[in-house]
């Protein structure tokens, strides 16, 4: 049984059909990349899984259990946590308070929160230095670290990242990708959405390519990285 399985998902924004029958699978322990250009429906797919959107048709299963239509907080409780596009950290709260919000469902469990916070600070020492600072004053890279750290505070079993490399300098992209790999090695399954196909394919075990609401290609990441279509469309082909 796959950890996450989408079958025949149709999601609408009003009258516009953003997802036209998406089916995909994420096995436990994998890193799966979801590639495609702007507007292909990658974010919509994640938002459908995390409960921000409700599919009009089709099924979402998490460890065999149907979850489509559950409210977002119930989905977080099951262990699916999304790092949203554009980080969306809570600007008027301090770094530490942001992390505390990530552990909202574990509120009151002081020991657990302390332990997880220590682990996040271990992973991102910069955040520890700035723990009392308002999150809105952090740099873009630090905000991305905080967004990932905040999600980890919820102890995800499936971590979904939406464009984690967006707007970051190349060395920071590498650092974030390396961190995601470490998180995966600690036993967290990862589904990552990226426009930066090159770094995503380096990170992922398998990948799907989306175009205008449909999945057009899928396969092992290494294979897709050699696929001529993918190279031409997303990896600056011809070189």
């Amino acid at each position: 049984m796959a950890m996450l399985e989408l079958s025949g998902i149709h999601t609408f924004y009003g009258a516009i059909e953003a997802l036209k029958g998406i089916s995909l699978k994420v096995e436990e322990g994998e890193v799966v990349a979801l590639l495609g250009s702007n507007g292909a429906g990658k974010s919509t797919t994640l938002r459908t899984v995390s409960g921000l959107l409700r599919p009009r048709q089709g099924e979402v299963r998490f460890q065999g259990q149907p979850i489509a239509g559950l409210p977002p907080d119930e989905i977080v409780r099951l262990g699916i946590v999304q790092v949203p596009e554009g980080r969306r950290i809570f600007g008027p709260l301090t770094v530490e308070e942001n992390l505390e919000m990530g552990a909202f469902l574990a509120r009151g469990q002081k020991a657990r929160i302390q332990e997880d916070m220590a682990r996040v600070y271990d992973m991102f020492p910069r955040l520890k230095e700035r723990r009392r600072q308002l999150a809105g004053t952090l740099s873009g890279g630090e905000q991305q670290m905080l967004a990932v750290g905040r999600a980890l505070m919820a102890r995800p079993r499936l971590l979904m990242l939406d464009e984690p490399s967006m707007g970051l300098a190349p060395n920071l992209v590498q650092f974030i990708m390396q961190t995601v790999r470490e998180i995966n090695q600690q036993g967290v399954t990862v589904l990552v959405v990226e426009q930066n196909a090159r770094s995503a394919l380096r990170l992922a075990t398998r990948a799907y390519v989306m175009e205008t609401g449909r999945i057009t290609l899928e396969g092992p990441a290494a294979e897709l990285a050699r696929n001529e279509q993918v190279v031409a469309a997303y990896l600056g082909g011809g070189r």
Binding site: S50, G51, L52, P71, P72, D73, V76, R77, V81, Q82, P84, R88, I89, F90, G91, P92, L93, M101, G102, F104, L105, R150, A151, A154
Partner: peptide
């Protein structure tokens, strides 16, 4: 306050 600042992001935190 988190909900006030960004309702969706708050929902994603459970």
């Amino acid at each position: 306050r988190a909900v006030a600042f960004d309702l969706e992001a708050a929902q994603l935190m459970g």
